[in-house]
């Protein structure tokens, strides 16, 4: 082991206190220096949350580690994701996709604000949530009013709407799926589908 000059290395960092107390327990100067050089464990002071891998339907249990606690109303920044060793199916293991989950959460191509691309334009522009949602509601209302079919040619009540379609997700929760179902079905949309077919 290469001796390290403890004095030169520590220079008053928080680790100094730890190193000093190690010395008090009888560690040699070199050992204390090595201990002090070890980066503090990066999951110290993180909140742990149980979650499920977002990819395939094996549904491996995962633990999400974050700085900050959402349950206390704090902003929580995810620093690490690993397999849940208590989970009966995966028992802590993850595949190459699951092992890289943190990087999909932190992807540079995550969307962070609503955007609009206007007809003919070659770019997205920011738009407020309110404007985007009002635009959508207006477009739905106008298209539905113009194209809703109350009765078919035989005069039978059919109450369907065929000029708007909705493709639902495949990795949202049941609760989101249910809210989506209620909203979409109540409008009479029939072109309603999800990833199950592909």
């Amino acid at each position: 082991m290469t001796p390290i000059s403890r004095r030169g290395f520590l220079a008053g960092s928080a680790a100094a206190a730890a190193a000093t107390s190690l010395e008090a327990f009888g560690f040699s100067e070199a050992e204390a220096a090595v201990a002090a050089a070890v980066k503090p464990f990066h999951l110290t002071n993180t909140t742990e949350t149980r979650n499920t891998c977002t990819y395939c339907s094996v549904a491996c249990g995962i633990i999400v580690y974050a700085k900050g606690d959402r349950r206390k109303g704090e902003k929580a920044d995810i620093v690490h994701i690993e397999g849940d060793a208590d989970h009966p199916t995966n028992r802590g293991t993850l595949c190459p996709k699951g092992a890289a989950l943190r990087d999909i959460v932190k992807s540079e191509t995550r969307l962070t604000q609503p955007m609009v691309r206007r007809p003919g334009s070659d770019r997205f522009e920011p738009i407020s949530w309110d404007s985007a949602l009002d635009k959508i509601a207006r477009a739905l209302k106008d298209d539905r009013d113009a194209n809703f079919i109350e009765k078919n040619e035989a005069g039978i009540t059919v109450n369907r709407w065929l000029t708007t379609g909705f493709l639902a997700a495949s990795a949202t929760t049941n609760e989101t799926a249910y809210a989506t179902y209620k909203v979409v079905r109540s409008t009479g949309i029939l072109a309603f589908d999800n990833q199950a077919r592909v």
Binding site: Y55, C95, P96, K97, A99, A100, S107, E108
Partner: peptide, 17 residues
Amino acid sequence: TEHFHYWTKNNHVNSVL
């Protein structure tokens, strides 16, 4: 095995693999 549909091409690690 390194990719999930069209999602993980947004992921640096999987895109390296």
